[in-house]
Amino acid sequence: MHQRRTILPLRTGLLFLGPAALFIGAFILLPFFWIAGVSFTNRTLTGATAANPQFVGLQNYLKLFDLSTFMNPGQFGSSLVITGQFVFWSAIVGQAVLGLLLAWFFYRRSGWVKESVQTLAIVAWIIPDVVVAFAWNAFLDYDGGTLNWLFGLVGLHKVDWLLAMPLLSIVLFNAWRGAAFSMLLFSSALGSIPPSYLETADVAGAGPWQRLKDIILPLIRTHIVTDLILITLWTFNTFGPFLLTGGGPAFKTEVVSVLTYRMAFKYFDFGTGSALGMVMMLINLGFALVYLGLLRRQGSSR
């Protein structure tokens, strides 16, 4: 491997990085240290512990993992399970697979059909949260909702989506909302595959499924990992479900970000809210390491 020539000297590089670093230091690192510190206190915004917060050690963390109430509705354990299901189904299965299908389906095609469909997917991704929430509330409404109207057309029974299947509702919602990012990422990943690879496959008579499995997926392996890291992280932290269901009914859709909101901003219990934030960051870190580890192992076994 030949020594690459340095294009930017370190000092200039740091200078370029400086303004961004200043912002990140002030608005990300400072709050992060505040959160880390407060997670070991019983600080609240109102009530007696607002005026005199005390150091409580690991108490906030232990309370989160209190096994006698861990799995009760509205508690951390139950919320974690809901979040796990939500992330797995809506991000990993929903967004990534839907995004990959969209990218693959339109791969090496162009024209108004591709443009329109991809634009629709991107529109779902860019319009504001509160607007999307309105639209989905109406879409899933029991009596007049578009989805139940469609079900009626094909002779299916109406479903009370937000009450009877709340978790499925937010999964569908989030998959729909975020598929465009994966689609964009995979589209450009596919675009970076040299056409000659696929031509060879064509000559060898490989079917489309085989081509996807044996050639395309291994080639865009690293992109898949990046995609999974980002969408897992974003889905773990998304507040979208709150706008659709408010976390209910009976906390059935209370993902951890919504639980954190309830602790920090409804109860003003910043100790617990901060501890939740810290635990979630560690879990996210764990996921990122697992994904990267998978990538490395696969890479070395090849």
């Binding site: 915004l45 109102t46 009530g47 007696a48 607002a50 005026a51």
Partner: peptide, 8 residues
């Protein structure tokens, strides 16, 4: 109550 006891 919560605002008063928090000295707010």
């Amino acid at each position: 109550p919560e605002f008063a006891s928090g000295n707010l």
